[in-house]
Design a protein around this nucleic acid. Structure first.
Lengths: 184, 184
DNA sequence: GTCTATACAAGGATAGAC
DNA sequence: GTCTATCCTTGTATAGAC
């Protein structure tokens, strides 16, 4: 991995662990093993580097989700695969957590990948739910868009709850329960 | 409101808007109108003042929820009151957001009110759900604890989604959808 | 109780040598 | 491309006068 790459990956980790406000250039340099001048040679500053890191995390999140969504199986099975995929619930969502970062939300460039990711995710889930409703797998009365919002919220809120209580178990309780309610 | 009180309230606002890491003593002084020496006279430092602010926000959140839970009406009505209560979804949850603050989570004193609030909230919802299951309002097959986790997660995740997409509407979609799934 | 002065580390970045 | 030196601001706190 070259220096530029190490800078991006280290920034991704730090943004995940400490957020944008809590991550200093110095911390990035230390974690990546790059020097002061090296970092400012590859990137214009903290926001520029953060944009690269956030964009990559956003793409990563989408491609993982899409892999679950396109697996063979029924709609409910595919949604179940997504909801029950192994996650380190106590670490939280690397993209969702940026939502609490005032300096990220205040900068349209940094904010955009976050916005796009969640718009895409709920849209994609709504498509699946509409498909399940059409083929009779799901109740004819469900609202695909609203249900997609609820499922996405359960995942994001599951992270919050897990971190708050210090227990990864509540994440599983929440997502399993959402699935059970959906299946009925 | 005396100085001590203004310091606490200003800190509550800033923690809500910018989190612990993003809130400086200077910003607190400016917002509260208190001087440097005044702040350090009333509190030992940033963590001490933050503890007062966090504790109050936690109590506030619990008492609002309890007011909804003890209203007259069926279990589903009371849960519905709680879920549909007016909130500024774009501001997020003042307690839930602290979950993303590394320095809060790392300090057991600051962390405790957050932990207790969510343990209490899920426990209380589980009691209500068990009551509804017992009196036939809810499906006999539901798991109160797991469903409580899902409902709490929908609210917390609804905030995340609303902030991510910039639309308070998704919060309502998510909570309404959760209620609809519960009612069936 | 509140104010001002002072202190010192950390955040964030630029300049120029190599 | 990377290193070191340097710069100015902000964060966080203490000391002592009023």
């Amino acid at each position: 991995m070259d220096t530029r790459e190490r800078l991006i990956e280290s920034t991704r980790e730090l943004l995940w662990e400490r957020g944008y406000v809590g991550t200093s250039p110095k911390a990035i340099q230390e974690r990546s093993g790059a020097g002061q001048g090296s970092m400012y040679h590859h990137f214009h500053g903290k926001p520029d580097l953060a944009l690269a890191a956030i964009s990559r995390s956003a793409e990563d999140m989408r491609s993982r989700a899409e892999a679950d969504f396109t697996r063979p199986g029924t709609v409910v099975e595919r949604i179940s695969t997504y909801l029950r995929r192994e996650r380190d619930a106590l670490k939280g969502c690397p993209v969702g957590r940026l939502t609490q970062d005032p300096d990220v939300m205040a900068d349209p460039r940094l904010r955009r990948p976050v916005e796009e990711t969640f718009a895409w995710l709920t849209g994609r889930l709504a498509e699946l739910l509409a498909e399940g409703r059409a083929n009779g797998e799901l109740d004819a009365g469900i609202d695909p868009a609203a249900t997609a919002a609820a499922l996405t919220a359960v995942v994001q809120g599951g992270y919050v709850l897990a971190r708050a209580t210090g227990s990864a178990n509540v994440f599983t309780q929440a997502t399993d329960s959402a699935l059970a309610l959906l299946r009925r």
